[in-house]
Design a protein around this nucleic acid. Structure first.
Lengths: 337, 337
DNA sequence: CACGAGTGCACAACCGTTTGCTCTCGCAGC
DNA sequence: GCTGCGAGAGCAAACGGTTGTGCACTCGTG
């Protein structure tokens, strides 16, 4: 590989001049002719600066890490896109890392990030992280921005409008005529799940309906838990005529449970999920969802992190624009009775 | 952060001694007492070596990159796990990066990897990469190992036993009594897809059946393409009584198409997919699949790459153990007529 | 012609580690 | 008493860049 000094030698200048030219140093006074020679030389040698040296000298890696609990989660894809887009515009690379509190200790995150490998970290929390896990994990020497979660006393987060999303779901069901609405909740320890649950209670009340506690089943974020929870709710008598699921995968699990129990969706049970992804188009029936602006959340988190690296303070943001959006497909209809 | 010289100062030695102690330099003669003091000092200051400086000095990043076209693909998850497990054992961090030939030019990969950010790269190819794209993309200054693809004249790959997988699927259908078997193929430009197609033709022949060309529809790797392809096949007369799909997502798309066309799976059409993931348990009906050892492939690729960094040559490997495994669920049954 | 103000470039230090080599002891052998 | 030697530790260069500062030179002006 060509080094800076090779470029400088070819251009007949010192490394310092070459450096200033290639970094567009506006302070420096460089002859236009010299500048050209350096640039030509760099082209000719296909010079690419060594990231290690640059990072060492500048105490900056030009890279951020996106830590997710489960890389293979559909909604995560758009989060990643948002982060990627912003980071790319600001010349920062994005490294993804999967990190599950279930299998790795808090120290592992520090190992992964190493010391100076990235300038900052964006963390998406999942159901397995307790607050303490999370606090332990973010004891890094770089700034951390949390996505879809907040931590008491910790600044640096981007949250989604969970309440509004659930409200859309409830109101949709209410308008269809449902009154007995159940809720497949997320893990109680996750504050976003808590917000969705509160949103459910509140919007039920606002719609003039009662949220019956036995129709609320805690699940988690994944399909098996959703199936279990739905199985319980279905067995009740009277049972709900509609279900709101706090996440897409639990909704898929719920549909599975309904099918296995011989209950037809949507004619006997309507299902609506919070969060959307391509799979919603491929379930039978197609799933009615409330799409959350995950891409925007990712973009906002990346922007906040990169701004912070440039000197701005961290903050707790709420993504209000675009709003969560109801996407009516086939899994919801009016109650039969 | 504590630096090496801080540790040295606290222990009352020079940085060089501290370095040798902390790196377990066996050549160096260090007094046992001194050694203890250094280690204590490092503990006390929670010293973590700076990766930037280390990487610069050693020309080694202790990290590898895993490049995938679509991070949000279920089968990719186990690939990642395999890579992660091996890398972890060998003290290398794994960075994930999404890189799609559709949206990014070849240069982008070099940008992403930068120069010296990682020691090597594992690349999973998708349908959008032409051979030329792939060749362009892997012109890096670090070694590259390809997963599930091979390139003429390029050594460094781990392939899966595509033929055996398809053979399992075909034989399963044959044993159920199917004779009119269609194939939802991958993109023709992907060599793994080609191998699966050849495997289909060969195993059909071996089973005493004819693979009719009009029952072979090229799709890709994703659900919409699978749905399109299946729609075409279903419209034929006579139409196949069973479908082998070259990937999980196309199979999901095929099931969608069948449902939309009013064709019942499995009674009127059996479907079996190559590749398995959690979603197979959540389709209606549950999907019969052939699980490929993706985790093992990831582990082998990582091992090959890290071995290569230690001086071993790259090779072209085929994962034969464990074998692809047929998982019979609900989407296949004997033909009705 | 002398002087000051620019202009254009090079020198050298530094980021934090690693590592070949040198240096300084203390001690044994002759 | 001098030399040789091994143990133990420090010096300094190097990895590849960036950047504050200094130096030499040109040119315009009084």
């Amino acid at each position: 590989m060509a080094r800076l000094k090779d470029v400088a030698a070819l251009a007949g200048v010192s490394p310092s001049v070459a450096s200033r030219v290639l970094n567009n140093d506006t302070q420096a006074r460089i002859n236009e002719n010299t500048r050209k020679r350096v640039i030509d030389a760099a082209d000719q040698l296909r010079y690419v600066p060594d990231h290690r040296a640059r990072a060492l000298r500048l105490s900056r890696a030009d890279a951020i890490a996106l830590i997710v609990p489960e890389v293979n989660n559909a909604i995560f894809s758009s989060l990643h896109q948002g982060v990627q887009a912003v980071a790319h515009d600001r010349n920062s690379a994005v490294f993804l890392a999967q990190f599950d509190a279930e299998t790795a200790d808090a120290n592992a995150l520090a190992q992964l990030i190493g010391n100076g490998r990235v300038d900052g970290v964006i963390v998406q929390r999942n159901e397995h992280f307790t607050d303490d896990d999370l606090i332990a994990a973010i004891q890094l020497d770089v700034p951390v921005v949390l996505v879809n979660t907040r931590l008491e006393g910790y600044a640096g987060s981007v949250a989604l409008n969970d309440r509004e999303a659930v409200e859309l779901a409830v109101n949709h069901l209410r308008e269809l005529g449902h009154e007995r609405i159940g809720f497949v909740a997320g893990a109680p320890r996750h504050d976003a799940a808590t917000r969705r649950l509160e949103g459910f209670r509140d919007s039920m009340a606002a719609a003039g309906l009662t949220a019956r506690e036995e129709w609320i089943a805690p699940a988690g974020w994944e399909a098996p838990a959703g199936a279990e929870a739905a199985k319980t709710l279905i067995a009740l008598s009277p049972r709900p005529t509609a279900l709101v699921a706090a996440s897409l995968n639990t909704a898929i699990g719920a549909m599975r449970a309904a099918h296995d129990a011989g209950i037809a969706v949507p004619s006997e049970l309507s299902v609506v999920a919070v969060q959307d992804a391509w799979m919603s188009e491929y379930t039978v029936p197609r799933l009615t969802t409330v799409a959350m602006p995950m891409r925007e959340a990712g973009a906002r988190a990346a922007a906040m992190l990169l701004d912070h690296l440039a000197g701005e303070p961290l903050a707790d943001e709420l993504v209000t624009e675009p709003h969560p959006q109801l996407i009516v497909r086939e899994s919801t209809t009016s109650p039969s009775s």
